[in-house]
Write a protein that binds this DNA or RNA. Structure first.
Length: 441
RNA sequence: GGCGCGGUGGCCGAGUGGCUAGGCAGAGGCCUGCAAAGCCUCGUACAGCAGUUCGAUUCUGCUCCGCGCCUCCA
């Protein structure tokens, strides 16, 4: 199993199974409902967990929830409500929205506010070893004390532009580990440096160590987190003597009309809305169509194409035939294809390549092959038995059959329209009742 | 400006130094009372310019274009 790592700039081999694989993924800051773009890493890493487990790895997936930071304070002030209250509500919505994807949950989803002891302890350690210093109630990481700073993002410290100068910092590149409580902030925690709250990056270092230990395999998150967030996490944890993550996976961003979908740009579609409009299966298949590292354009056209594919797979499972006597066409050898499928996912988790093999299985009508593999992506629901038509629909279909039997095609067509108006589609088939009822979109 | 990732047929999107990716859309046909579903057939694409090579979409360089990041910002 190989995965592309930002740190090494190349594919990195995972130790052979059975091995423990710890995965830490940066989750959302909860100050608004999450958007579809936020859903991508969630989906990718749950899929990855499924696949690694299937390959015999012992996986622990951790994804944090940032429930205290500047954004939350700013939003709660706008809404004139307690920040903790806002964070709790949005955090609950995050769980509810992602639950609808039907992929289960990560193994742990720690919140920053519940990790204060560990956070303060880590900062204390960094101060003690000279990698951090207190200034006016804040604590800053001393970037100059960590020689490898910039390794992950490729940013060279001396060419980083200085933004608003902060007189408390020894060096403009230093970043906050702990921030003294400011005017208007309605939550705070005690620390050796006075009341305050953690900086943005430190929670991840503390949580990863707490849940996965000082060294683990994979750290994930959106491409936009490489710098400064992940660079800083890496610096903190390494400075604290931890090996930290071996492989750094950064998923491509979702784009809307060519730009990254982001809350600050305002071009967002909430995950909730997309699930309402397109359904979980279409969204999941949409995510499968692009490699996890590529940017992906969210548009009605690309979503339609995903929906058509979803329908095509579902259609295959509507077919009833005797699989025990099924003859596969020439060119379809399940064992050969199974190996190709594994190779596709083992090779940097190439879902579009894997999907192509599922389509090949589809044209060979190999239901078992597809069903088993679709489950990795939470799409085995496409193989599930569908809703039975209600009695009145069945009755109309029966009447239509009778009309057809007497060549009364006008009546038959009328009944087909009646059925369609009720949201069902009637098809003529050669098997027993002579028709098939399918629920429309 | 710096760092990084990309540019594949109408659209989406893998991949490979020479061998059919796949999907969507479109065209024709089979099937059907008509449909729907299904099936069959049809597309020689790889930003541009050099170079390496027997041979490059695949390797190297340059150019053009797109996207992300460049310290509190998602």
């Amino acid at each position: 199993m190989r995965l592309y790592s930002t740190l090494q700039h190349e594919l990195v081999e995972l130790p052979p199974p059975p091995a423990k694989v710890g995965i830490y993924v940066c989750g959302p800051t909860v100050y608004q409902r999450i958007h579809v773009g936020n859903g991508r890493p969630y989906v990718i890493f749950l899929w990855l967990r499924n696949w690694l487990q299937q390959r015999g790895y012992e996986v622990k997936l951790v994804s944090n929830i940032t429930d205290v930071n500047d954004k939350i304070y700013a939003e709660s002030e706008r809404e004139k409500r307690a920040s903790a209250d806002l964070a709790r509500e949005m955090s609950d919505w995050y769980l509810a929205d992602t639950d609808r994807l039907g992929l289960g949950r990560p193994d742990a989803e720690p919140k920053a506010t519940e990790m204060m002891v560990e956070i303060v302890q880590l900062i204390t350690e960094l101060v003690g070893s000279g990698h951090a210093y207190e200034a006016g109630g804040d604590v800053y990481f001393r970037v100059g004390s960590y020689g490898d700073y910039g390794r992950l993002s490729g940013q060279k410290p001396n060419q980083m532009s200085e933004q608003e100068p902060n007189p408390l910092k020894e060096d403009a590149r230093d970043f906050a580990l702990w921030k003294a409580t400011k005017e208007g902030e309605d939550t705070s925690w005690d620390s050796p440096w006075g009341k305050g709250r953690p900086g943005w990056h430190i929670e991840c270092s503390a949580m990863a160590a707490d849940e996965l230990g000082p060294a683990f395999e994979i750290h994930g998150g959106g491409l936009d987190l490489v710098f400064p967030h992940h660079e800083n996490e890496l610096a903190q944890s390494r400075a604290a003597g931890q090996e930290f993550a071996h492989i750094w996976m950064h998923n491509g961003l979702l784009r809307l009309t060519g730009e990254k979908m982001s809350k600050s740009l305002g071009n967002i579609q909430t995950l909730e809305r997309v699930l309402d409009e397109w359904g979980r299966e279409t969204l999941l298949l949409f995510f499968m169509t692009a490699h996890w590292r590529s940017p992906i354009d969210f548009s009605p056209e690309t979503m339609m194409q995903a929906r058509t594919q979803v329908d095509a797979f579902r259609e295959l499972f509507r077919m009833k035939f005797d699989r025990s006597t099924q003859q596969f066409p020439q060119g379809w050898d399940p064992e050969v294809e199974a190996r190709k499928f594994e190779e596709a996912l083992d090779n940097d988790f190439n879902t579009p390549d894997a999907l192509a093999i599922l389509h090949k299985a589809r044209s060979a009508w190999d239901q078992d092959f597809i069903k088993e593999r679709l489950s990795i992506f939470g799409l085995d629901s496409l193989a599930a038995p569908e809703e039975e038509a209600p009695p009145d629909i069945v009755e109309w279909a029966e009447k239509r059959q009778a009309a057809r039997a007497t060549q009364d095609f006008a009546e038959a067509d009328r009944l087909r329209d009646v059925i369609a108006a009720a949201g069902w589609e009637v098809r003529d088939v050669s098997d027993d009742p002579g028709y098939q009822l399918v629920k429309g979109d």
